[in-house]
Design a protein around this nucleic acid. Sequence first.
RNA 1: CGGGCAGUAGCGCAGGGGCUAGCGCGCUUGGUUCGGGACCAAGAGAUCGGAGGUUCAAAUCCUCUCUGCCCGACCA
Length: 488
Amino acid sequence: MAEKITPRSVDYSQWYIDIVLNAKLADYSPVKGCMVVRPRGYAIWERIQAAYDKRFKETGHQNCYFPMLIPMSFLQKEKDHVKGFKPELAVVTHGGGEELDEPLCVRPTSETIIWSMYKNWIQSYRDLPLLYNQWCSVLRWEKRTRLFLRTAEFLWQEGHTAHETEQDAVEETMRMLDVYREVAEQVLCLPVIAGRKSESEKFAGAVATYCIEAMMQDKKALQAGTSHFLGQNFGKAFDVQFQTREGKLDYAWATSWGVSTRLIGAVIMTHSDDKGLVLPPELAPEQAVIVPIYKTETKAAVLAYCEKLLGELKTAGVRAILDGDESKSPGWKFAEHEMNGVPLRIEIGPRDMEAGKAMVARRDTGEKAPLEVAGLPAKAVELLAAIQKNLYEKAKAFRIENTKPVASREELLAFYGKDQGEEAGTAVATGGFAEGRWCGDGTCEAALKAETKVTIRCLPLDRQEGVGGNCCLCGKPAKHLAVFARNY
RNA sequence: CGGGCAGUAGCGCAGGGGCUAGCGCGCUUGGUUCGGGACCAAGAGAUCGGAGGUUCAAAUCCUCUCUGCCCGACCA
């Protein structure tokens, strides 16, 4: 099939949709705002899950499962929480043909139902910490949806922990933020900025929200994961009291943290090009594809040569496939596997066979070179590692290139261009990340957002020491170093 | 939820009151091909997004509705 991908320079949004659809990662569902994750997309999700789940276990967490339906009254117990989520709730009012006594909402997140249970399970400091996680889907009635980036129902994981002390909970919040950062960088090749959210961007019900923010190729920011310090808000709302070491009563301290299938969107928008999907080898369902090239009389020999190599690649730990489809020409297969983001393509024809070689092409750089087939499996492992590294480095260089320190309002406005926003159909934004000092006043931030749609993405954790000078927006003394950007 | 655009075969499109709804790609079958999206031949595939209405006659006109995309408002 000759589907064309809209080039990024023409329409970035359409390019993204073209990739998702053509690479068969997901499709629209009959239900508005929902998506079907297809096997190729789900395989990527499984790899993301595996990487995170391993680290959750290593940091002492256990998986569990809580119900999808939550009594409406539970949501109402924490006032900020209900205020934040009410507009996005789906509510079940009937069951078995009869109206329910109490409506049930489909979880938009599970703090409330989980803490209603924690009340029963926590009596003493000896019961703490409670370190639970669940992989599930949640539903938020979104007005405007985009495949993977914002859908009504999405897959995610939510960690919910209860602690004895404030310090323990804060440490947990930061520990999981660091797990998010590490996997994003090492496995997804996403350079991210770890930071704290401003008050206005905080999770409904949290004391503090921390996040990892990534820059997409259109220079907009994407929140890739969040970790919340919930204080005693839910402990109090659900009356989760425990006896302390001193014999007194105290409310449990809480955290929650989540990453979602949005990460797949982040990977696509960070690495892919106009030929299609580009995937970090660690995430790629297939890491190498062998494309045999033969004429009728050379077919058997070429295929045998390919089969042998395929076996060796697998033995070396490479997820390799042989594309033996006889109804497609080699050229078609090249384009197809590029569309699908297979990191390495190995072309083998009679000429290579005679020379004891194979033509190896890298998806990330497009480089193509004949390699000795004898050492190829080991070389493939090296190349995959090199691609993994290159994708991260390239994305990081792009972010640095498009990050600018700003000292004044004028500089900031100039960075984002006079005419704010994007024209329809030319969705590559001006600007990028602006780094500026900030007074910490929410009105300052709100005014900027109203005028330019630029918001404070986060206050980077490692850049807050000795922030002096004045707010780049209002000129008053600054308290923080902030990263500004337009965002998804 | 507001403004704009679009829904006709799996995909991309044409047809804008009239008789059997076309085309390209893809798909099926057979054959020839095979180093960057091959070719020939023969086939299959559509209640024209849905509902209602106007009419002798509706894919085509009218009303409502659903879905997607872009822009805005809202937002983990």
